[in-house]
Design a protein around this nucleic acid. Structure first.
Length: 617
RNA sequence: GCCAGUUUAGCUCAGUGGUAGAGCAACGGUUUUGUAAACCGUCGGUCGUCGGUUCGAAUCCGACAACUGGCUCCA
């Protein structure tokens, strides 16, 4: 019995692969600069704390870092000034980066003498026969494949950003090192621009906007990672569900509803227990009087569901199935619960209760490719509606060496399904990366990766093939030859979970939602008291048309009303003064665009309805 | 979970041992308004929780909780 990951939102672990020499030679100029800057950082730290032990200091997507071990000192932000001052001296000294080569024995002796134990260990990673190169600048010599800039003086625009901890070699069983993050650019203007962009990112953060717009909240008494959707956030949730239900209905899905929990027995069948018990909330025990602890015996255990598939499998299994019913597409916006580690929670992006845009498609092998293609097309349709541009399709396949261990032992089905998936991707002209050894236990999958405004990578949607679990649940259908066959199952969640998807949407739009999604679509703003009767009529007709409209009949001046509406990110403002009231017209102002002119209210209403119906961007 | 940091009014934040502050919001009044803030006033906090040190604690110490950053980029 093997546990398997059914968790849709599970982040894939990056394969840890040492860069080849070839890849190193392809380092960009910027990476070279940042890597050199990391060496300057290490040089400075060693000048101030000579006892520091060094690990590694690579360039990253946004800058660089260097890992240190200082037994008797904790870096604090105030140290940055001191370190940066020393770095400045080093760049002023304009030291040359000089490459040299040592034998393995020389290298080991060199680091052993310097007490650099991490470096001694890192030496062992270098394959026999590969050159062991060093770079020296001034008094600092580091094991390094390079390449570097010519001189420390070439490093002009840099900044230390934050101090964090990191496990040695990324393994939580290893000791933690202190990591200093920094960034560097060719030009000072570029650094300033990047810092400004970081500021902008902070302003777009879904946690900040969610609070400002009263979309969702967390409460200590409710519990960490358990979001409360406020009225305006609920609008977003329900609009997404409406979109999903319409789309899925048109694509031949049927809706089902299942409870939030299930007995222990089901999770034994599914294989979640005991392997995934830790990722689930602890069970609820049903007790009766007896001999056990506290005079009670445990009669049964119930678990909150971490995924919907077992429940859906049970619906498939409830009655005998015929090939004529396939493909059977069962959809549910199911609420799931996962006991995420406390340190991994992050706003709405990573939570402990989540509602999935889930569906399971049961089909025959012959139907598989078409079904999978249809699911992919659904993804692309959604992404077009939202105008997503920056995402990556990640195709995760198995590793034949791990069949029967990490992956279900059915080489033929692996090959067949992976070929089908690959073909669908290529046919649809979708850009994707193929990552071996990252498939689910039960089949290959496609994850859609996006990046939060703070730069963290998340899986926003997933499409998985499952040829292993249906047999566990004894799922079967009668074929046209009157034999029993096991269906394939496609798990898919193009809109991921409400929590993560909406977090991403908030950041994507910076809270400036398109009309169809906007929590407050229209605000009617009468100027003074005279036009209030007409403004109320306008408001009433908007509500009757199903438009989320409010009216601000308060006593602020029109500039104040506009200010309030703009700050609330109301999509459309209808300014109504005496002129409009007399002509049955409205002066239209769009959030972020300003005044777009006066039009008859009737024309305005049809335009609003049209925009909402078509879900215009 | 681990390391570090943070937690003061609904929100954004001042306040580093001597009895808690500002702006915005809310509420009340005055103002009757033309495309991003009219004016005046009022209310609002056992300073995350619990414990300790002290004549005295938002401030110092400890525990706990929540949040934030990092633990993914590999010489």
């Amino acid at each position: 019995m093997v546990g398997y990951a059914l968790f849709f939102m599970e982040e894939a672990k990056q394969a840890v692969v040492r860069k080849t020499l070839d890849e190193r030679n392809q380092m960009t100029d910027l990476e070279r600069l940042r890597h050199s800057c990391a060496h300057v950082l290490a040089t400075a730290v060693l000048r101030i704390w000579p006892q520091a032990k060094l690990d590694i200091g690579p360039p990253t997507k946004e800058g660089f870092y260097y890992d240190f071990d200082l037994a008797d000192h904790r870096f604090c932000p105030e140290d940055f000034e001191k370190i940066e001052a020393e770095m400045k001296k080093i760049t002023k000294e304009n030291q040359v980066f000089e490459r040299s080569v040592k034998t393995r024995e020389e290298a080991e002796a060199f680091f052993a003498e310097a007490g650099q134990t991490f470096k001694v260990e890192r030496l062992k990673d270098i394959p026999e026969g590969e050159e062991i190169s060093f770079y020296q600048n001034g008094e600092f010599t580091d094991l390094c494949a390079g390449p570097h800039v010519m001189r420390t003086g070439n490093i002009k625009a840099y900044k230390l950003l934050k101090v964090a901890s990191a496990y040695y070699r990324g393994n939580e069983k290893n000791p933690q090192l202190q990591r200093i993050y920094g960034t560097a650019f060719q030009k000072k203007a570029e650094l300033a621009e990047w810092l400004e962009a970081q500021e902008e990112a902070r302003r777009r953060d879904h946690r900040k906007i969610g609070k400002e717009m009263s979309l969702f909240t967390f409460d200590d008494d409710v519990g960490p990672g358990l979001p409360l959707w406020m009225p305006k956030g609920t609008v977003l949730v329900e609009e997404l569900e409406k979109l999903a239900k319409e789309t899925e209905f048109a694509a031949g899905y049927q809706r089902v509803r299942t409870p939030h929990l299930a007995r222990e027995a089901m999770y034994k069948t599914s294989g979640h227990l005991p392997y995934y018990a830790e990722s689930m909330f602890p069970p609820m025990e049903v007790t009766e009087a007896g001999e056990g602890e506290g005079g009670t015996d445990v009669k049964d255990r119930y678990y909150l569901k971490a995924m919907n598939c077992p429940h859906h499998h049970k619906i498939f299994a409830a009655v005998p199935r015929s090939y004529r019913e396939l493909p059977m597409r069962l959809a549910e916006y199911g609420v799931c619960y996962r006991y995420e580690q406390s340190g991994e929670l992050m706003g709405l992006m990573r939570v402990r209760s989540m509602q999935m845009n889930d569906a399971h498609i049961y089909c025959s092998a012959e139907q598989f490719a078409e079904e999978f293609r249809a699911v992919n097309e659904m993804y692309l349709k959604y992404f077009q509606i939202f105008g997503f541009e920056k995402y990556q399709m990640r195709f995760s396949t198995h590793d034949p060496a791990k069949l029967g261990e990490k992956f279900v032992d059915d080489p033929e089905l692996w090959k067949k399904t992976e070929d089908m998936v690959r073909e669908v991707l290529v046919d649809s002209g979708i850009n994707f990366v193929e990552i071996p050894n990252e498939a689910a236990f039960y089949g290959p999958k496609i994850d859609v990766q996006v990046w939060s405004i703070s730069g963290r990578e998340f899986t926003i949607a997933t499409n998985q093939v499952d040829f292993a679990v249906p047999p566990r649940f004894g799922l079967a259908y009668k074929t046209s030859e009157n034999t029993l066959a096991t269906p394939l199952c496609i798990h898919r969640a193009p809109l991921g979970t409400h929590e993560r998807f909406i977090a991403f949407l908030i950041e994507h739009y910076a809270g400036n939602f398109p009309l169809w999604l906007a929590p407050e679509q229209v605000r009617v703003l009468p100027i003074g008291d005279d036009p209030i009767p007409f403004a109320k009529e306008v408001h009433k007709r908007l509500r009757e048309a199903g438009i989320r409209a409010e009216i601000d009949a308060g006593r602020d001046k029109i500039n104040g009303k506009i200010q309030n509406a703009e700050q609330a990110k109301v999509h459309t403002m209808l300014v109504i003064g005496n002129r409009e009231s007399e002509a049955q017209s409205v002066s239209v102002r769009i959030h972020g665009k300003g005044n777009v002119g006066v039009t008859s209210f009737d024309a305005c209403l049809s335009e609003l309805e049209e925009s909402i119906r078509l879900r215009k961007p």
